[in-house]
Design a protein around this nucleic acid. Sequence first.
DNA 1: TAGGCCATCTGGTCCT
DNA 2: AGGACCAGATGGCCTA
Length: 211
Amino acid sequence: MLGLQTGQRSTKPQRELSPEEQQELRRKINSRERKRMQDLNIAMDALREVMVPYASSPSSASSQSHQPGAPPGRRLSKISTLVLARNYILLLGSSLQEMRRLLGEVSVGMGVNTGPVPRLLLAGGWPLISGPGQLLLTQESLLSSASSSSSSSSSSSAAAKCPLLSPGPMEASLAPVQWSSAGASGGPLCPCGVCRLPRFNHPAPAPRFPK
DNA sequence: TAGGCCATCTGGTCCT
DNA sequence: AGGACCAGATGGCCTA
């Protein structure tokens, strides 16, 4: 496995441990980390279950692609699950905004004071949802609808096709990642392989661990 | 066989 | 001090 990398050394003064103690400690730490990752995977599976069309199929299909438009039959990868979930959240946000807007129009048209959003909006009847946890969305429709909902007034740039691109005002505030079409036209695709868009730039994270 | 995805190990840092 | 969190490295499995 990995030893200490060159130039690295523990900053903690270590109490002398016998090899057995070190081994036991290492086992303990590894076990905790395994458990942590397993919990993370459980949460990821719960998220996958929401993406019904892709969550339950075995990996037996032979010609499945990892791309968003690929037919179902394969478990969503982690990155795909996260991107889809994000898009779905954005879509719900847009739907909510649109419904509020329509409600406002109806209220004005009827000369009724506009009150809080009716419970109707929260009690079901949501578009795209047929029951608890049951989405009627396909991965492709999610991606495309999120894109269209967020870019109804955007340009026809290639970026507009990306679910993570051209976010509207609301979505922009939710978009931690930024994309660029840097490079030649039809340049490098996003390395995530999910959105099929030009390269995206991870915002430089604040150096949490100055080294 | 190359590439994608994943689990696991490991060391460092932060938090309680 | 111990646990949680994070990121890098590694190796296995699977698919195109």
